[in-house]
Write a protein that binds this DNA or RNA. Structure first.
Lengths: 191, 191
DNA sequence: CCTGTCATTTGATCCAGATCAAATTCAGCT
DNA sequence: AGCTGAATTTGATCTGGATCAAATGACAGG
């Protein structure tokens, strides 16, 4: 995928960008191809970058009392960042790692702020991305409060039908807020 | 509070607005003073309004299998809306009601979209509001996943120290994702 | 100051999912 | 193929908070 194609997809997926803005964005963005298991962000770091996945997938996770708890997955054409660090300029509570060999764009906060100041278009695109993220968080809250473990698992499967082929069950379980063992029992409801 | 003061506060709290934009916003906004228990939004309605509280407080809630579950509280200088309906143009799963006699500003989606198109400033203000909302949702997720019922109660008290004087315990309990009885036991840890 | 309604507390029991522990299956490597 | 550590399954037990039920408290209106 060329830079040009990336920017077009972005502009079409989220919110249209003027030719001028697209051009400047192309100049400012870095495209990276990195192997599986690469860590993009470590806990405790100040992370002022947002990543946009072209190909592959990634997750954000915490180490909470030594336990690895996934907080967010991103696939092709989705964004991922240590949102807390990115938006509040505090050290990241998250790690972010690639779950497959991936190609992605890294955008620094300076770049995003600069383009947002300069181009109303770009500010809108960011607003759209943040709004979608917010709605996804909301859905997760009601999922946790109102649905049982197995309903939540069923639900994530409808959203990402082949997630189990790309992401280990441990990570799916912790994302759903349940243990590995419970997820396993949900998947094999015999005995 | 005059219209002028309201717009100034808004501009200072969230993101600065140009004089021109402030003026147009003043023309477009409706100020309402309504008694306690007024319903601003009903379940099933298409709600294309966002409310900004000048004085008083409100909550958004679901009726889930006949049970009343609070999903959001807003106090002075905060926004509340049926976010799902507002952002996705679908019928609202929420009710919104006033918990005290309140003064508030109602802004329609048309107004917000119009001002966002016309003024980069205003688009930014909305982006800031949405970002804060998103971060507050995130905090709620980690609160539910990582903290016990009594930690969550302690936490909401630090954020809104006198919430118990303004909001009935039932609503606080359901917001925290616990029952009324559990909250009561948390508050009276004797016997 | 009494009464009905709503809010809160207290008590007894129950259950989804956690925890701890062990067995099995799988995948990458030589 | 065979080896090794990681991923997943299976089993037994435990627990925070839910649920059901009843008692008490607070307070607005007559």
């Amino acid at each position: 995928m060329t830079q040009n194609e990336i920017v077009h997809t972005l502009s079409q997926t989220y919110s249209p960008l003027s030719a001028e803005c697209r051009k400047e964005l192309m100049d400012k963005m870095t495209i990276l191809s990195l192997p599986k298991h690469t860590c993009l962000v470590l806990e405790g770091q100040y992370s002022d970058k947002t990543f946009y996945l072209i190909d592959g997938c990634a997750r954000a996770y915490y180490l909470k009392d030594g336990k690895d708890i996934s907080d967010w997955f991103a696939f092709e054409n989705e964004f991922i960042s240590s949102i807390i660090s990115f938006f509040t300029d505090t050290p990241s509570p998250h790690y972010i790692e690639l779950l497959e060999d991936s190609t992605l764009v890294a955008l620094s906060k300076d770049t995003i702020d600069g383009l947002s100041n300069q181009y109303h278009d770009f500010e809108r695109l960011i607003r759209v991305v943040v709004t979608q993220t917010m709605l996804r968080q909301r859905e997760r809250i009601s999922s946790i409060l109102f649905h049982t473990a197995s309903q939540r698992y069923a639900h994530i499967l409808t959203r990402y039908p082949n997630i189990t082929r790309r992401i280990p069950l441990t990570h799916i379980a912790s994302y759903l807020g349940i243990t590995l063992e419970t997820l396993s029992r949900i998947r094999n409801p015999k005995s």
